[in-house]
Design a protein around this nucleic acid. Sequence first.
DNA 1: ACGATACGCAACGGTCGCGTTTCGAAAACT
DNA 2: AGTTTTCGAAACGCGACCGTTGCGTATCGT
Lengths: 207, 207
Amino acid sequence: MTTIQESAGRGRPRSERAEKAIVDATLDMIGEGVTVSELSIEAVANRAGVGKTTIYRRWANKEDLVVDSLATLRLPMPEPGGADVRADLIEYLKIMRSESSELRNRCITNIALNEADRYPDLYRRFRELVIEPRREAFRQVLRRGVATGELRPDLDIEVAMSMLVGAMLFHTKMSGPDYPVPGDLPERLVDEALRGFRYDVTRNVAS
Amino acid sequence: MTTIQESAGRGRPRSERAEKAIVDATLDMIGEGVTVSELSIEAVANRAGVGKTTIYRRWANKEDLVVDSLATLRLPMPEPGGADVRADLIEYLKIMRSESSELRNRCITNIALNEADRYPDLYRRFRELVIEPRREAFRQVLRRGVATGELRPDLDIEVAMSMLVGAMLFHTKMSGPDYPVPGDLPERLVDEALRGFRYDVTRNVAS
DNA sequence: ACGATACGCAACGGTCGCGTTTCGAAAACT
DNA sequence: AGTTTTCGAAACGCGACCGTTGCGTATCGT
């Protein structure tokens, strides 16, 4: 937490309503695609219906405000259902897809993809707080698949993860009216990945 | 070409040196991660060692300048070597990787990933001019593989492409001092994709 | 030579956001 | 009641960039 400490419990307490409004406004704007460098305290204050003073009293600078706001996004990845690897992978990819459509969760990809170069500190904190736990959850699904014998024992976990996650991000980022994301993309991705591209007459047709 | 027409060949001709310097400065800044909305004509002029007038004389607005500058990036994808599908795919992925490291070619991914929401017109023109030809070249490699029998006849071309391209973009975007891109990533990606994740005792070990 | 156009440069008035300060009112404490 | 702190609002001086204009110079065609 990078919030500036309040001095004591003496006077009027800080408004939680105002604080929430500020964080909400920040996240909304980031979700809409506003860059961190473009994000102005003035705009956040207006959108939150709050005086600039109220923001500067709590956060020393814009970066701290953004970090604290993003930290509220740390929703845990749900434990996968566990029927089989295929179902687990599809479940996670579907979560990713839903996140790309919900304004609030677009923040994650917007920050992760756009701000790495310009705000390395912010990016590092964000990565450890939000990105890495998700990657780890995804890795765990794949490792479990190897353990159960569903996946090849020599499977390259990192490469496999980047293929599925990367493809999903690729589609959601490139999507638009001309190129919508197919509804069954998670299933198709997982099936193609599990099966492999190569034509191999010795292999049975996938069920 | 959205450049403003020069009136006639009467007076002093426009300096090609200045024009090149302007475009170069624009592309350099975009490659360095400057957003289109952040890109200021003033900064471009300073960097190019040129008066603002010289820019405004040629382009009506920032967006036109950016479009024309990006249009100079339309380097053709080389014809793939053609030894086999694996070699062709690896070749294209290596091109993508090299583009992520060369400043000038970072423009492509920076624009493609960051500006879609805010500059739909620019994005559409850029996509048709630069992105789509590359996607099509990639698709062709996969289609050829299906035709030669190397790839499954029912392979989902779009999904397959997004897996390879998406994974490559994912790695290059996420890369940094902490998470470098493995040198043999193209090979590993292609091999995992061709082979499939699933453990299948009836299949021979991949060569 | 002469007119026309482009050059780099500097300055214009205007807008926006910065971070700070001041203000009167509101809401907690002793 | 009196003190302390926060509240939203408004204004401050500052700097960046906007798009335009005028300046003296340079470089072309006629």
